[in-house]
């Protein structure tokens, strides 16, 4: 290999690393700009309160069954695992403490976030993506209506409001699931279990749980709407947008959870 060949190899190596890095930064920039535009436009009229209520209903209310089931099953499984694991060093009595901390700090927000992302990010991407490819969004602009205000902002704010409410429900049901399993299968004293739960739980835990929920809610709607708006290429494009929305919402939820956990509890 000559000198020129070697230089070319090095250059193409840098190019191979650089290209995806640059495009990743460009994507992050576009998503941030999209979020900022939505928030800025949402502050000035016209407002769409009915669209917001519609989205609250579809994100919050209709996610309740799946969130409740997830939380109940996880709370129970958690209690069983801690009991069995704790037996090895005689720490069975920590079940109520670990269930409450595990649910409120981590599993409640994360599992709710993931379940709602699966339901909602995909639905938003599919709906907005279909509107994009059938020119409904262009039509909206020609009808003097701002898609950011009409379509995106209600979804974003509804999601930020709904997620903390859902996480509250998930936390309570998860703790109660752990309680039921502990009392009826593992033989815990009901009053003692509840007392220990109440003693361990601090208000900071609850605040952090709700902060996480709101952040996840933001990412769920943001990725659903962003993927939807950028849809191109017919039915296949809508399919891609739906998948992208869910995958990116999952990644962002788990990444932001790690960052928030380390920042708050590390």
């Amino acid at each position: 290999m000559g000198e020129a060949g070697a230089i070319n190899t090095v250059i193409s190596l840098f190019a191979a690393i650089g290209r995806p890095v640059i495009s990743a930064f460009a994507t992050i920039g576009r998503i941030a700009l999209f979020a900022l535009t939505t928030i800025r436009r949402a502050l000035t009229p016209p407002y769409y309160p009915i669209r917001l209520l519609e989205q609250l209903l579809s994100i919050g209310w209709y996610s309740l069954p799946v969130v409740a089931l997830t939380a109940a099953f996880t709370g129970m499984a958690l209690a069983q695992q801690i009991y069995t694991g704790g037996m090895r060093f005689n720490a069975q009595s920590t079940v109520p403490a670990i269930v409450v901390i595990g649910m409120v700090r981590e599993l409640g927000p994360v599992l709710t976030g993931l379940m709602v992302a699966g339901r909602v990010s995909s639905a938003m991407a599919a709906e907005i993506g279909t509107m994009r490819v059938t020119e409904q969004i262009d039509a909206m602009v020609t009808l003097r209506t701002d898609p950011y205000r009409y379509l995106i902002a209600p979804r974003l704010f509804a999601s930020i409001i709904a997620l903390p409410l859902l996480v509250c429900v998930a936390n309570v049901i998860g703790i109660f699931g752990g309680y039921l399993l502990s009392v009826y299968k593992l033989g815990f004293n009901p009053a003692g279990y509840l007392e220990m739960t109440a003693n361990i739980l601090e208000s900071d835990d609850i605040v952090m749980s709700l902060v996480k929920a709101a952040v996840f809610g933001f990412f769920i709607a943001l990725m659903g709407c962003y993927a939807g708006v950028r849809t191109a290429g017919g039915a296949a494009g809508v399919g891609r947008a739906t998948t992208d929305a869910v995958v990116w919402a999952f990644v962002l939820i788990l990444l932001s959870n790690l960052i928030l956990t380390v920042a708050a509890f590390g």
């Binding site: 059938t134 020119e135 409904q136 262009d138 039509a139 909206m140 020609t142 003097r144």
Partner: peptide, 18 residues
């Protein structure tokens, strides 16, 4: 926005809000 109010457009597929 003000100028856009002068326009109407018939889209190819209709683009009605379903």
């Amino acid at each position: 926005d003000r100028v856009r109010a002068k326009f109407g457009m018939l889209f190819q597929g209709g683009a009605l809000f379903d």
